[in-house]
Every structure is written in C-alpha cells, then in structure tokens.
Design a protein around this nucleic acid. Structure first.
Lengths: 187, 187
DNA sequence: CCAAAATATGGAGACAGTTTCCGTTTGTCA
DNA sequence: TGACAAACGGAAACTGTCTCCATATTTTGG
C-alpha cells in the first residue's frame, strides 16, 4: 500500500508541498478556501493540485491518513512499553490531548470528511484495530470486561472528535474517557 | 420562539411541502441533490425554496430542529413517568433505537450539518438540557455519580450519531450506551 | 363582494467556484 | 547528450448557486 508507485522527483516535491500547506491551513481552521487560491498558496498550478488531489476531500483524506498512521504507531508503542490497562488508558487520554493541541485540524477534518468515503472508513478501521489490540490485551489480563467491543470505544472517540468546537470540550472529553474507562472496568 | 410571524397561507403550504420533501429525501440518504432540482421535486420554484431556506444547511437545520423538539419532549415524558435511573436508561436506549429506524436521516443530517451553525449549537443545547435534567434527577436519587456532566454524555451520543453508517453499528451503539450507563453508576 | 395593499411566487440569467484539456516544461534513462 | 515520458500551469468551458423582479395570490377594509 505504501509502495507500488515510484513518483518522479518534482511530482513528489509538489505533492509534499501541497500536503504540508494543507495541514497548515487546516490546522488554522481554513476549510473552505477557494481551491485555486489554495493551489496558488502552495505555489503550484491548479492543474497540478487537481492531478494530485482530485477533490477537496481527497486532500483532507491524505492529511487524515497521516494522522491515523501516527495514532496507530502510538498505540503500538504504548502497548509494547506499558501494562495492558495502563496502555489503554494512556492511549485514550493521549488521544484527547492530541486533539486539544490540534483543535483546528480536528475540526476541519471532521467537517471536510463528513461525506464518508472509502479511504476514511479504511483509516477508521486501522485505528479501530489498534484500539482493539489495546482492549484485547487488557481483557486478557483480566483488567476489563470483554462483552463490549472496540467499535463502541471508537464511537465514543468519534463523538469526542465530532464535538470538538464547543468551548468546554476538554472537560467533557475527559468525562467521556472517564465514563468509558470506568464502564469498561470489570465489576 | 414559535410564534411572532403569522405566515401567509400559501407560504406556509409551500414551506411545509419543502420540509416534508426534505425529510423524505434526507431519510432516503440524498444529501447532495442539486438545489434547484430539489425545488422542482417539491413542486415549487427555486426562488421560493431560497426564500424559505437560504442555504442547504438551513433546510437541514429545520428538519434537525423538529427532530430535537421531539427528543426533548420524549425526555420530559419519560422523566415524568419513570424513576430517575430508569428514565435515563430508557432515553438513551430509545435514542439508539430511533436512530436505527431513521438511519438515512441521521446520516444525512450529520453530513449536512457538519459545518457548525448557531441554530445547530442551540438545538444541541436544548437536547443537552434535557439530558442534564435526566442526569440530575438520577444523581439526586443517588443512582449515579455526579462528577461527570451531561456534556460528556452528549459527546458520546454525538459519536453514535456521527458513526451511523457502518454496518455493525447497532451493536456498537448499544455498547456505548452500556459503557456510559455502567460508567455512570455509583460504585 | 370587490378593490387596493400586502405578500409570495417562479424562473431566467448573472455569477462564482470547479474541473478539464493541452501546449510547454522538467526530469529520467541509456 | 538526446529522446522519451512524466508532470506542469493556467485559460477556458462547465456546473451548480443565488439574485432579482414582473407576475400571481392572499388578505384586508370599506
């Protein structure tokens, strides 16, 4: 999935420039900038922009994808260095923190990707698997119940992402995580 | 908020036709139908459509608003007829059920309203207050903890709404509700 | 019941953002 | 270094959105 296409040097350069600029603008909260202006801002022609990212959503997806990959890596890392239940808690809390430091990005991505796409579902799945890994490990260690799946936890996270524009959200986000962790604890 | 404008007979008729058609189409999953085609479908001119609902989002909001009003009424009713903790549980479970029977609508509304608006926030607040009412009653009755606010529960619900397009969602949605209810229980 | 006033209608056309297309430029490989 | 392939840029065509106003409908008051 990562290979299969040896991109020409300038093409890669442009693609990266677009992606970088996109992340920057998205993080700043610009989600409906004119598409051709965006090309200008990134220093490439409109045609080039379109060749790399046929739609506004494709661009968002690419950024989103990078984000997911980083998240999954983090899950892996935590799982390898902490006890199962701590890894799970750390991941979930870290998720909220990350979101909080990239509010703009989160908000923009959730807006821009509202029209569900294949790539998006796929990304969600990848993240879901990472969460499932954390949950399974904790369940096997006897630290949490095993009758509620990773999908449920993903939904809760999704809720946090989706709501990330209200003022008091950090408190509420923490509340959700608390509810999820407490709800998961074997009683 | 409900009064203040005695609408002319034909105006009301057209408005209702638009709203009804919108609900029907949204429920069927059509969220990016051409706006002028939509007008034709509802049997009115484009100008009329625009006069009543200046944007696509305004239309979505109107439908969303009706939905919220119904939800709030339900909360009120449950609260009046059941013990606090049962009312809360019934409301949350009912929420999922309702969503499940109107998948298309839920999905469309969440897509269409991704660009947050004032009216939307307002609607969310109304629903949030209804949930807060249920929570407070249950907390006072000593059935649940009181250190997690309604906002957190709202976020979880939001997550359920937002994720409502995956195949296995009912199970996961139930999982979320279970986690929330168990997480809320005083330990 | 009718005329005047008020309100609403519809859709042609102006407009803005999107997307295609192709002549030119840049990179690659032998 | 030359020839070929890949990528570039942006003018122009296209597509959906939204405005505007002459026409039609409803309401009001005499």
């Amino acid at each position: 999935m990562t290979t299969a296409k040896p991109l020409r040097a300038d093409a890669r350069r442009n693609r990266d420039a677009l992606l970088t600029k996109a992340r920057e603008l998205f993080d700043g909260g610009c989600f409906n900038l004119r598409f051709d202006d965006f090309a200008k801002l990134a220093g490439v022609g409109i045609g080039t922009l379109y060749r790399h990212f046929p739609t506004r959503e494709a661009l968002a997806e690419a950024v989103y994808h990078e984000e997911i990959v980083a998240m999954c890596a983090r899950a892996q890392e935590l799982q390898a260095t902490l006890p199962a239940d701590e890894a799970l808690a750390a991941f979930l809390r870290g998720f909220v923190t990350h979101l909080d430091t990239h509010r703009g990005l989160a908000q923009t991505l959730s807006t821009l990707t509202a029209t569900r796409s294949e790539a998006l579902t796929e990304g969600g799945q990848a993240l879901g698997e990472a969460v499932a890994g954390l949950l399974n490990a904790a369940a096997e260690a006897g630290a949490i119940r095993n009758d509620v799946g990773a999908g449920a936890v993903m939904m809760a996270l999704h809720g946090i992402c989706a709501a990330y524009d209200q003022p008091e959200c950090l408190t509420d986000a923490d509340g959700v995580i608390t509810l999820v962790l407490d709800g998961l604890r074997r009683r």
